[in-house]
Design a protein around this nucleic acid. Structure first.
Length: 433
RNA sequence: GUGGGCGUAGCUCAGUUGGUUAGAGCGCCAGGUUGUGGCCCUGGAGGUCGAGGGUUCAAAUCCCUCCGUUCACCCCA
């Protein structure tokens, strides 16, 4: 019985890892511009954090958490999302005591025990931002803007931004009650909607079942129930987005799954992804900090799924031309020259060239084939003939042109040639880190 | 957790109504030059046909169970 990666997990193999590195670098670059500072929290937390933060009745807490007891009998949970841990850390280290606004970002693996499907895994990766310490709708607008501008920076197109407000607990309560009384008579709703009716009637609004959509077509929107303050907050947020030229669609049926959201909620979706089409989800959480034991402190944030982004980037052809090809490969023709070849390769690396040394002395043909497969730009050949004259051969693989070069000059020689045709648009190894 | 599709070489897949040593393309390795890659040619390695059980003279092919995978539901990134 062969051992494979656990269900819902996957290996990121070298070719794929190149793409991840590129994406991670782009994300960090954009967050730098916007002044978000990285925070790294543990991958597991006390179970209680998520129970209190995300909400006891949410699906995540009810059935999707990887929870275990450590040897001291404490219940720990692999983090299913990033906001609660970041807020915990914010409270634990009293980051609010510096006063003003705190802007943080995180990136890393999350864990949820669900059945895998397209764009959904058990270990998956998210990055996200949390903007804490202000109730201003400018903060809502900024958080949405960071996401949108980041995706633009990645070169993504055809994304759609959905925005809504689910109000504060006060106006939402009234809405939920009205919704319940209107819908509780409708027995033709789908099974899951009948369950939602008890648990969270608002979720019925974003049911994908066409029949349910038809039945709830004329139901009033949450936005009709917003109190004056919440209404004002929404309108300002939208107007800031308008002014900044951020396209969005006001979607009154947009509801999100976590209990901690208040007022603004939003999503960025990509139709090409299949059923799991959300690439980003977020919103405002004005009571979460308090819930976790901190002072009353408002916040907004989003989380974005990296697997889904990479899938989208692949579909949109944004990964063409990635390569880890070395600039130089070595071919050594005789065992007696192995040490000299190894030493020369080391010198070239010290001079800053990416070099694949010769690790197995085989036929020149085999070594050339290997160099060709690596897509090396140049091959340095150590043969007895040239070595006894203090030289090596340097072959340019693109056109097969070949020179004899003094071994002391090799590095200079190759660098000159590389500079001359460095019009290449290819992503060289490490160039984006 | 529920439902559907799919499991044959490293990869993508053929495999006729069950019937001799299970195939192709690509990839890999080697050779076609005494020291030269990509194209071409030749040869080679590589499979407990997902696993277990059953039916049969005979199973990759039919039946059952399990496992894996994939898509969808629930929910979400």
């Amino acid at each position: 019985m062969k051992i494979s990666a656990p269900r819902g997990t996957f290996d990121i193999l070298p070719e794929e890892a190149l793409r991840w590195r590129w994406l991670e670098a782009a994300i960090r670059r954009v967050f730098d511009y916007y002044g978000y500072q990285e925070i790294r929290t543990p991958v597991f937390e006390h179970t209680e954090l998520f129970q209190r933060g995300i909400g006891e009745t949410t699906d995540i807490v009810e059935k999707e958490m990887y929870t275990f007891n450590d040897k001291g009998g404490r219940s720990l949970t692999l983090r299913p999302e990033g906001t609660a841990p970041v807020v915990r850390s914010y409270v634990e280290h009293k980051l609010y005591s510096k006063g003003g606004i705190t802007k943080l970002f995180y990136m890393g693996p999350m864990f949820r025990q669900e059945r895998p499907q397209a764009g959904r895994f058990r270990q998956f990766h998210q990055f996200g931002v949390e903007l804490l310490g202000t109730e201003s709708p400018l903060a809502d607008a900024e958080v949405i803007t960071v996401a949108v501008e980041l995706y633009k920076e990645l070169g993504l197109t055809d994304l759609e931004v959905l925005v809504n407000s689910i109000g504060c607990p006060a106006c939402r309560k009234k809405y939920q009650e009205d919704l319940f009384s209107r819908l509780s008579s409708l027995q033709e709703l789908c099974e899951s909607c009948l369950r939602r009716l008890e648990k969270n009637p608002m979720r019925i609004l974003d049911c994908k079942n066409p029949r349910c959509r038809e039945l709830t077509k004329d139901v009033p929107a949450v936005t009709d129930y917003l109190c004056p303050a919440c209404r004002d907050h929404l309108e300002k947020t939208l107007s800031f987005l308008d002014k900044a030229g951020i396209d969005y669609r006001l979607e009154p049926r947009l509801v999100r799954g976590f209990d901690y959201y208040t007022r603004t909620v939003f999503e960025v979706i990509n139709a090409g992804l299949g059923a799991q089409n959300a690439v980003c989800g977020g919103g405002r959480y004005d009571h979460l900090v308090e819930e976790i034991g901190g002072p009353p402190m408002p916040g907004v944030g989003f989380a974005s799924g990296m697997e889904r982004l990479i899938l989208t980037l692949e579909q949109q052809g944004k990964f063409a031309g990635f390569s880890s090809a070395p600039q130089v490969a070595f071919a050594v023709l005789d065992e007696t020259l192995a040490a000299d070849g190894f030493a020369l390769a080391t010198r070239l690396r010290r001079e800053g060239l990416t070099v694949e040394a010769c690790l197995e002395v085989k036929s020149l043909k085999a070594q050339m084939r290997a160099a060709g497969k690596l897509q090396a730009k140049f091959v340095v050949i150590l043969g007895e003939d040239e070595w006894k004259d203090g030289q090596v051969s340097v072959r340019r693989m693109a056109d097969g042109e070949q020179w004899r070069v003094d071994r002391e000059e090799v590095c200079r020689f190759i660098k000159d040639l590389l500079d001359r045709d460095s019009s290449g648009r290819e992503q060289e190894r490490g160039s984006f880190s």
